[in-house]
């Protein structure tokens, strides 16, 4: 009986306690809530600061996202994206069954991979050279010169290439003819040179600029490590091999992953400018095909489907590279 009573009392006490706890919690929540509003209110100006950026992003960056639906619809100007009839995968089917689907996909992938393979290691080598040469006028001027091509526009770059590699009057051909006495060809127009020209002009333009990030990573290596290597009798090449390369490897991997994510898209401007009817067999890539279908032929459904497919491929590439990087080393983007 006694025991029962005390148990009941305990229970009642527990209830009361529970109730108290609940009330306290509610009060805390209420306070927290007013706290949030107060914290927002105090800094209301910061939200005003954000308005232009948020409005721009919502309209110009998020706005087109729902337009991706056009890939599954027969777009009609009058009815808009929402009102147009669904057609399922019709546009994708048209795209996949088109006569140039495989060649376009192959061109895009090959060009991207070649570009990636050429532009990734060279800036690393350059950064290591910069890091191992004494600071001075010579180094500074070389760096200045190496950054300069990065500021030339794509149009001018392609224009220069077109003039320099022109069949009869271009300097390149004249010099080659004088030096090696060989007949030269129309380097700019011939399809077999297109990829090399595209990739190596890109290397020329970005080599110096891309080395900056690695130089920054290299200057972060502690001098004590260098001293330790010197004490252990390592020569310069050994220091590069066992100290500098491992220290910048994570940066290289991050740059590789970032480049993989964007590479299917960035090529459009230059490829489009370099495209001629003669080299179409190798220069037709997904973005240029998309542009022609969409903007020139007004076939919006097909063009959106191509764009969707392109994004999907680059997304898959990104995930693959990221997974491989994670497996091989510790660094990855996500």
């Amino acid at each position: 009986m006694q025991a029962n009573y005390s148990a009941a009392e305990n229970k009642a006490g527990g209830l009361v306690q529970n109730e108290r706890k609940k009330k306290r919690k509610q009060a805390a929540m209420r306070q927290n809530k007013t706290g949030i509003w107060r914290r927002i209110g105090v800094n209301y100006e910061l939200y005003i600061f954000l308005i232009p950026a948020v409005v721009y992003t919502a309209i110009f960056l998020y706005g087109p996202m729902y337009g991706v639906l056009m890939a599954f619809k027969d777009y009609n100007m009058l009815e808009g994206v929402m009102g147009s009839p669904w057609v399922g995968l019709k546009h994708f089917q048209r795209f996949f069954q088109g006569y140039n689907f495989w060649s376009t996909l192959f061109n895009t992938l090959l060009l991207s991979l070649y570009y990636l393979a050429a532009t990734l290691p060279l800036p690393v080598i350059l950064a290591i050279i910069f890091n191992n040469v004494k600071n001075g006028m010579f180094k500074k001027s070389v760096q200045l010169a190496a950054y300069a091509p990065n500021f030339i526009s794509v149009v001018v770059l392609v224009g220069i290439m077109k003039i320099v590699f022109a069949p009869d009057t271009g300097v390149f051909n004249i010099v080659i003819e004088k030096l090696f006495h060989v007949e030269t060809a129309d380097v700019f127009g011939r399809p077999e040179y297109f990829r090399h020209l595209y990739v190596w002009s890109g290397v020329w333009q970005t080599l110096g600029w891309n080395s900056i990030i690695y130089v920054a990573a290299l200057t972060g290596i502690s001098p004590e490590l260098y001293e330790a290597f010197t004490v252990d009798g390592a020569n310069r090449l050994q220091k590069i091999r066992y100290l500098e390369l491992p220290s910048i490897l994570p940066t290289v991997v991050i740059v590789l992953i970032l480049n993989t994510g964007s590479i299917m898209n960035i090529g459009f401007e230059k490829v489009y400018l370099m495209q001629t009817p003669l080299n179409l067999s190798v220069s037709e890539t997904l973005p240029t095909y998309l542009y022609k279908m969409g903007v020139i032929n007004n076939d919006y459904g097909l063009a959106t489907a191509v764009g969707f497919f392109n994004s999907a491929v680059s997304c898959i590439l990104l995930v693959i590279v990221n997974t491989v990087a994670k497996k091989l080393g510790d660094s990855s983007l996500f």
Binding site: I36, R39, I40, N43, L50, A53, V54, T57, I59, F60, L61, Y62, G63, P64, M65, Y66, G67, V68, M70, V81, G261, P287, L290, Y291, G294, V295, Y300, A303, T304, G307, F308, N310, S311
Partner: peptide
């Protein structure tokens, strides 16, 4: 308040976009 969600709102656009044609129509 809400710094992280707002940041994500912006960062998403670095990786995803509507593409050339939807932007053109917009």
């Amino acid at each position: 308040v809400g710094r992280n969600p707002i940041m994500i709102f912006f960062i998403v656009t670095m990786y995803f976009n509507g593409g050339m044609i939807p932007t053109y129509l917009l």
